[in-house]
């Protein structure tokens, strides 16, 4: 018995894109998300780089397409707890509104996304202790309130978690340089008199128009980029004293701020590990999906037989890239189903 249904685990932008593209060819798709709503992290984001589309409106557009396609069945508030290869097909067990269910699929896409690094792990910055210290994610979630609250000086600290081997994360989270520049721009636009500083290790704006965007924020908005790490944040006189080093000038510097934004890293989501190992895939040292060597796979998003992945469960990526990977995984699923049917006949 050949069941042609496709399972997509994780309804963020990557998973939604994969579901849309697979269903467009007429295949049945079951899209499962553990959250109450589709859209993953992006639904809570404000403007997205590079064209400043609102995260919520992007998610709305995708959800509308999904709702209008009867081929896509959406199960939210549902967690897949088992996914196994069974005789050339995939058996998934999941709990939907308290009811355990099992279903056979012919292919699957894992798009379980990422978690946010816990800013509290840097005691020196006082996240969760000192009022006024927030993460970049908090900035996105509470954007309106933050932009309204008058700020004399704001400080953005990049690479909080990323590229720090002492915190077990040697990798670059890739998106923080861009979203920090974007948030600095938004703050400057809302409060032109605010002094905005960005402390950086390197500026990695390797996206289309990325370099120009960051340059614009520096040159047109006069956001001050300082190369160096912030050593400590110290609450003083109701403000936050920033103690840092300017490594280009080679001098220690101090400044007082009202708002400190930590660009925290993207870390692998917990759901990824168990799913990937159950279907016979592997994780890399950081806990992201270990890709098959390029010359050995037919599709860039292949994981194991009939299983593909997309988005930040593979490695930190921006929204556009997550959607690209969703589409690529969909193409992989479709060609796999086509060749599989050929083999069955």
């Amino acid at each position: 018995m050949l069941n042609e249904g496709v399972l997509v685990v994780g309804g963020g932008v990557a998973g939604m894109q994969a579901a849309i593209d697979i269903a467009a060819s007429g295949k049945e798709v079951v899209l499962i998300d553990k959250d109450k709503n589709l859209g993953g992290h992006v639904k809570e984001y404000g403007a997205l780089f590079p064209d400043l589309t609102e995260g919520a409106s992007l998610v709305e557009q995708k959800v509308r397409i999904i709702k209008n396609n009867p081929k896509i069945k959406v199960l939210v508030g549902t967690e897949v707890n088992k996914l196994q290869q069974v005789e050339g097909a995939l058996k998934a067990s999941f709990i939907n509104t308290g009811n355990p269910q099992e279903q056979i699929f012919s292919a699957a896409v894992i798009s379980t996304g990422f978690d946010n690094f816990d800013g509290k792990k840097y005691g020196e910055y006082g996240y969760g202790r000192f009022p006024g210290v927030i993460t970049g994610i908090d900035f996105e979630h509470q954007e309106e309130a933050i932009l309204k609250r008058p700020v004399k000086t704001a400080v953005f600290i990049k690479c909080v978690g990323s590229r720090d081997r002492s915190k077990g994360m040697p990798y670059c989270s890739k998106i923080c340089c861009m979203y920090t520049a974007k948030q600095a721009l938004e703050l400057k636009k809302a409060q032109p008199n605010a002094q905005v500083y960005v402390f950086y290790m390197d500026i990695r704006s390797n996206f289309k128009n990325g370099e120009e965007f960051v340059r614009g924020v520096m040159e047109n908005q006069h956001v001050k980029y300082i190369r160096g790490r912030v050593g400590k944040v110290i609450p003083t006189n109701g403000r936050l004293l920033i103690r840092a080093e300017d490594t280009l000038m080679g001098v220690p510097i101090e400044l007082e701020a009202d708002l400190v934004v930590l660009a925290t890293a993207m870390v692998p989501s917990q759901a990824t590990q168990s799913l990937v190992t159950q279907v016979g895939g592997k994780l890399d040292n950081n806990g992201f999906i270990l890709p098959i060597p390029m010359a050995e796979s037919e599709n860039p998003m292949s994981l194991t037989k009939g299983v593909f992945y997309a988005g930040a469960c593979g490695f930190p990526c921006d929204v556009k890239d997550a959607m690209n990977q969703g589409s690529a995984a969909a193409a992989g699923v479709l060609s796999y189903l086509q060749s599989n049917r050929g083999a069955a006949k």
């Binding site: 005691g123 020196e124 006082g126 202790r129 400590k232």
Partner: peptide, 10 residues
């Protein structure tokens, strides 16, 4: 950091 019982920075 691997053995101290408290956070190094706070």
């Amino acid at each position: 950091k691997d053995v101290a019982i408290d956070d190094a920075q706070y």
